[in-house]
Amino acid sequence: MSSILISGATRGIGLELARQFGADGWDVIGTARDPGAAGALRDTGAEVLPLEATDAASIAGLARALDGRPLDVVIANAGISGDLTARAAQVTREDFLQVVGTNTFAPLALVSALKPNLLAGTRRLACAMSSLMSSVTLNDWGTQFSYRASKSGLNAVWRSLSLDWKTNRIACVLLRPGFVATEMTGGQGMPVADSVAGLKTVVEGLGPDDTGRLIGFDGKDLPW
């Protein structure tokens, strides 16, 4: 049975990933900031483990809980949007640091801590949830300063990681879920089940040669 760990799995895309992978027979571990409030995740059949994505001690605790346990796939899904409507002069240092800490640094810290588990797995896939907003090339309408910057930074991190871990045969791939109807989008966008069905197909088809790619739910690569 293949195994997958999904961070930020209590709602939205993370929860649906747990549901769809679990329904397909995968051994799913979902992380939650508050496992006591992760009833929907638990109902998918997933194992729930605590994780505060930006807390080093919490990441270390997760790694200890999973010590010696192989993981085929890790999806660093946990993320925040920050203030999406602030104009340039309204963006605060606190918002910027919180968003880049959660969306850019935390995914690297998570997969780094779980590298031994990935090395013990068979598929060896380290995935992170990026966004259309990460693309500098496609940015022709502005807005969302902190969020965009965090996802562009994430792309750089993953791209670098893909080169670093090539010798370990761990494929590091960025995923783009598309514009999905979640709390972050105020319920606008495509049904989350449709996006996740596409992402699941993409993840299942990934191999070592895909490392360093930024791939959408529709299987298409995005320009940087």
Partner: peptide
């Protein structure tokens, strides 16, 4: 990461 973030901030600032 800092430079990629900077590029995106600058692009967004330009918009």
């Amino acid at each position: 990461a800092s430079k990629a973030s900077l590029h995106q901030l600058w692009r967004t600032l330009d918009m």
